[in-house]
Amino acid sequence: MSTDTAPKPPQSRDDFISGQEVRWCPGCGDYAILATVQRTLAKRQIPREKYVFVSGIGCSSRFPYYMNTYGFHTIHGRAPTIATGLRCVNPELSIWVITGDGDGLSIGGNHLIHCMRRNVDLNILLVNNRIYGLTKGQYSPTSEISKVTKSTPFGSIEHPINALCIAIASEATFIARTLDTDPVHMSYVLSRAAEHRGISFVEIYQNCIIFNDKTFTPITGRDTRDDRMVYLEHGKPLVFGKKKNKAIKLNGLDPVIVDLDDSQHQKDLVIHDEKAKEPHYAYLLTQMEYPEMPVPFGVFRAIERPTYNKLMQNQIDQAVSMIGKGDLRKLIYGSSTWTVS
């Protein structure tokens, strides 16, 4: 196709903005995510017709309508299935699944698991705001225990699900977390996700200003974030704190916070390894939760495994090379025929 070889004028964010009026609530974290996705994609060398955004149902699932790319706003929880089918028949597209905590982890939990374990070459952005927004404020699978919502007037009695634990248990090959209020970090994570071959799973902490305002503020707020967030960098220790004077060590299987000002703690620090072969370390990171521990952001895991769509194509190529391209007549006529004259 000529578009692949001819030098293209650089793309801008505007190229990725569709004409559809954006209809999220004023102040919704989704605006920042949309803008960051548009800016990030514009920087990549891939023309916009190669992008497809597939979503389910929920506030964030309106996303495809606002992207001037190909898009499919599907049904509740099923976006990974449609994206999988699309990927199986087209190896060239850059396919993005936009889902939420309800869409992805509740009604669509099954598909999310299987899409990750198969390592389909897709990018999944799970926008987590710990609430059902579009249905006007019921608790979600990531809502905290005791949370009072319209459907839990006496507080939720359900233990919340941890999105990244599900991703690790499902052996996703790229797992990351970012947040709506840090566009620079988000853009970095999205670029990494886009470059990864295989499933990329990104949890994005997002604020629902109407039904669950400030749910992540104790962690990500301006005054608290330095002490309650830790940014992961491959090959480096997990340093955090306003003065960058805290880090993480392992006490047996438990991560503990140590004070770097104390010289005896400066060795044996946990060094972040996103390529760790076994998932144990990444799982341990997912267990670092507020308020006991700083919450990790960044790439938890980035490993290589053949993609589902590639393996599928390989079997076809192998069959063709071994027994030749299928002959329709031979297939239909089979091995045993008889003639009536």
């Binding site: 559809q20 017709e49 190909y70 898009g71 499919f72 706003h73 087209n90 597209l93």
Partner: peptide, 11 residues
Amino acid sequence: PGTPGLEHRIG
């Protein structure tokens, strides 16, 4: 999807 100039959204 992939065809230049026909970007559109369905649902």
